[in-house]
Design a binder for these strands. Structure first.
Length: 555
RNA sequence: UGGGGCGUCGUCAAGUGGCUAAGACACAGGAUUUUGAUUCCUGCAUUCGGAGGUUCGAGUCCUCCCGCCCCAGCCA
């Protein structure tokens, strides 16, 4: 899968270094929790883990960390698998679930109890918080900390047997309530949860905590490099403690910074909030930074992978510019997308010297970047539509599109000249009457005169209608994730994140459109899997074209 | 007056004591262009959070200081 040489990073360098002194198979894993959908931040991790395995001819597992039945669902398991596949990665038969290890984990817990390294605690959650101490003060031992091994064994078996209620008891590790690292202050290993698990059903009523599961799962799977994000850095001593006490295989954990993207949020909790409060349609709303949203929007997986390669891997908490993602999308689509003509906001143009019933088939190039893409025919007639923005009655200096008395080229067709502007009683421009120059068929002038402006157009009688959805950033704030800047998510939502054009005029070749296109001069668009309310096709704008005119016009 | 991390261009990010501190995105100019797209040139850190020190030589080593992030779920 390694297309070109991907830039190196500190983790890859480390592995290369290790490989110099010993020989082993690199074995990584991507460990999502099936409690929500994957987003672009997960893509970074997926590309890292699968990419490294690929780079070193190793193995990468897909493992679901499903230790909390109250939040996890099979539908998420399915969606996650679909997303990983779509991104372009294949776990082969390396599909695992932490829940596969519940028996083993239970046995690990028994082992710790027998070593006197774990105990059943009766403290309530509130009491436990008080006993934990604070960041600057040590905690104090639970009064139940010194129960006998026999009593602990008995109590833990009874927890498993369902003899206690939720919250009544937990199993804790016996480490050090005075540690500066709060994770070492006798962390909870097992809690009682009388919930049905999406895979193990009602077999269990006690479930291991993530901290007691993750490291051992990596160990069981013989993961060589456990890559995770920065916030787990101070969990590492705890994982090391478990592995050492249990005397089992010890993977190497390496932390890297999670992805932050400006103008977007990448927190599962907040994305869920957007869905639940109906600020977006669903997890796959094209404005969402989820992989399903990006897929629906029309982002090519290749572009996302390229983006992940380009942002690099480091330990500094950084925010990547959204423009880089858009750049990667444009770069890929520029090479691959078929060019078509679509008019979003139509302005009628009648060519007064063009024969009434004549229709010409003009040759249009499908993709100037790809000589093999060929050409297609586009019908041209007396009445066409152009973009309203492409005409100005009183244009500024640098405007070189259509204006009264000015000439402009209709792409692949003729040079036309604006002779008359027709307005309605409200003074709105409703139609342009133009002449065309028959000597300029397909757009080339015979006398060598330069025509600066070239416009896209669609013939009235041949136009096909569809709904087009234009998307902008979901947030107006550059850093909506920062709660100091944005205490209330809703207030920084962009009211213009979605603009619907109900009736855009498309060239007829788009009647059976599939996949992604470049709408000439407008941007890249992709067919939505759903139909509009009126049964029309829907096109989603993936990303605009770079627009220097907009920059000039804004000055 | 706890513990763990991080600070190199507007944004990411190479750099692991020795040529003038990579590259990408962004930005600004210019050329080409039947997409104001693409492509192509050009410019864009005398300086690496700050101050000392070690060294012939420091972004890279040492000391101190400053700033930012994470941790007090029976979440992951």
């Amino acid at each position: 899968m390694s297309e070109v040489e991907t830039p190196s990073n500190f983790i890859q360098n480390k592995i290369e270094e290790e490989l110099k002194s010993s020989s082993f198979t690199v074995h990584t894993r991507f460990p999502p929790e099936p409690n929500g959908h994957l987003h672009i931040g997960h893509a970074k991790s997926i590309c890292l883990n699968f990419g490294l395995a690929d780079k070193f001819s190793g193995i990468c597992n897909l493992r679901f960390d499903d230790t909390n039945p109250s939040k996890e669902e099979t539908k998420f398991v399915k969606a996650i698998q679909e997303d990983v596949k779509w991104l372009g990665f294949d776990w082969g038969n390396q599909l695992f679930y932490a829940s596969d290890y519940f028996d083993q984990l239970f046995e690990f817990a028994i082992r710790l109890i027998k070593k006197g390294k774990a105990y059943v605690d009766d403290l309530t959650p509130e009491q436990m918080r008080e006993y934990r101490g604070t960041l600057s003060e040590p905690g104090k031992n639970s009064p139940y900390r010194d129960r006998s091994i026999e009593e602990n064994l008995d109590l833990f078996q009874k927890m498993k047997a369902g003899e206690f209620e939720e919250g009544e008891k937990v199993l804790r590790a016996k480490i050090d309530m005075g540690s500066g690292n709060l994770n070492m202050r006798d962390p909870v290993l097992y809690r009682i949860l009388k919930a049905s698990h999406h895979r193990t059903g009602d077999k269990w009523c006690i479930y291991p905590m993530y901290d007691f599961t993750h490291g051992q799962s990596d160990s069981i799977e013989k993961i060589t490099h456990s890559l995770c994000t920065l916030e787990f850095e101070d969990h590492r001593p705890l994982y090391d403690w478990f592995l050492d006490e249990l005397e089992i295989y010890h993977p190497q954990q390496i932390e890297f910074a999670r992805l932050n993207l400006n103008y977007t949020i990448l927190s599962k909790r907040k994305l869920l909030q957007l869905v639940e409060e109906r600020h977006v349609d669903n997890w796959d709303d094209p404005r969402m930074p989820t992989l399903s949203g990006m897929r629906r929007r029309g982002y090519p997986p290749e572009a996302i992978r390229e983006f992940c390669d380009r942002i690099g891997i480091s330990k500094s908490n950084a925010t990547v510019d959204f423009a880089l993602l858009e750049h990667c999308v444009r770069e890929y689509l520029n090479r691959t997308a078929t060019r078509v003509m679509v008019v979003l906001r139509p302005l009628k143009v009648v060519l007064i010297n063009y024969p009434e019933d004549q229709v010409e088939e003009m040759d249009a190039v499908n993709n100037p970047e790809d000589p093999n893409a060929g050409t297609r025919k586009m019908p041209f007639s007396r009445t066409v539509y152009i973009e309203r923005d492409d005409f100005m009655e009183d244009p500024p200096k640098k405007f070189f599109r259509l204006a009264p008395g000015r000439e402009v080229r209709l792409k692949h067709a003729y040079v036309i000249k604006c002779e008359e502007v027709i307005k309605n009683s409200d003074g709105e421009i409703v139609e342009l009457r133009c002449t065309y120059d028959p000597e300029t068929r397909s757009g080339a002038t015979q006398d060598g005169r330069k025509i600066k402006g070239t416009l896209h157009w669609v013939s009235e009688d041949h136009a096909h209608k569809a709904e087009v959805r234009l998307y902008n950033h979901l947030f107006t704030q550059e850093n909506p994730a920062d709660e100091k800047v944005c205490p209330d998510l809703k207030s920084s939502l962009n009211p213009d994140s979605l603009e619907i054009i109900e009736e855009a005029l498309l060239e007829p070749s788009l009647k059976n459109a599939k996949g992604g296109y470049q709408f000439l001069r407008l941007g890249y668009f992709s067919v939505d899997p759903q139909k509009s309310a009126s049964g029309d096709q829907i096109f989603n704008r993936v990303v605009t074209l770079r627009d220097t005119w907009a920059k000039i016009a804004n000055k």
